[in-house]
Design a protein around this nucleic acid. Structure first.
Length: 203
DNA sequence: TGCCAGGCCCTCTTTAGGGCCTT
């Protein structure tokens, strides 16, 4: 893979939309350099609101776990320092970008990092997969996993393994020596039928 | 007042609708 670093990030939240008042309750992030996870960041956060039983069941994160957790603002400051200026990757990035931007806004910060979506790229590269949920793709590509799902660090690590695998597959299938972040971003935006031509002709 | 996501992507398409993906 390229000799650049990306930060793969995942949030657990109280719901689907920061616009509707939902907040982050856990973040996991890993740095990927040279095909490997080289650093990890994880923290629960206290959203100062009660989790629905759906979210408790879905994530395994309970209300009592969060009463002892640090404030969202203090975790966001540490997260900002961890991700620095690295390009960001998430599975269904529009979801994580919305929450990251909303929480940064509350501490008067602005994200300047670029974002790429592993789900949009996987839809183009792995058109035969049963579906493109993170969990399914991990099974489909037989990626390393500890079996934990819907927790932030475990999901960030799985998305990182998927990212590494997608770059390896592009290099192998299209004889590319490097796959710049810009190429991955481009893939996420293009028509499925044009992907092969694009990768074949990209120098 | 009451309701409440949103962006991508396919197709029975573009003067639209519905499934996928994230929690």
């Amino acid at each position: 893979m390229g000799n650049y670093t990306v930060a793969v990030i995942d949030f657990e939240t109280t719901g689907l939309s920061p616009q509707c008042g939902d907040r982050t309750i856990e973040v996991g992030a890993v740095l990927v350099t040279h095909n490997q996870i080289v650093d990890r960041f994880q923290s629960l956060m206290n959203p100062k609101m009660t989790l629905s039983s759906f979210i408790e069941d879905y994530t395994g994160i309970t209300n009592s776990m969060l009463t002892k957790a640090p404030d969202i603002s203090s975790v966001m400051k540490k997260l900002k320092s961890f991700i620095a200026k690295y390009p960001l990757v998430a599975h269904n990035a529009s979801f994580d970008a919305r929450f990251l931007d909303a929480e940064f806004k509350r501490i008067n910060q602005i994200r300047t990092n670029e974002f790429a979506c592993s789900m949009l790229i996987a839809r183009r590269l792995y058109q035969d997969a049963p579906n493109h949920k993170l969990e399914t793709l991990v099974r489909y590509k037989r990626l390393t996993t500890d079996g934990v799902h819907h927790r932030a660090l475990a999901d960030a690590e799985m998305a990182a393994h998927l990212w590494i695998r997608m770059i390896a597959d592009i290099k192998r299938d299209y004889s590319q020596s490097t796959v710049p972040f810009r190429v991955m971003q481009q893939l996420a935006m293009m028509q499925k039928k044009k992907v092969q031509d694009y990768l074949t002709t990209t120098p």
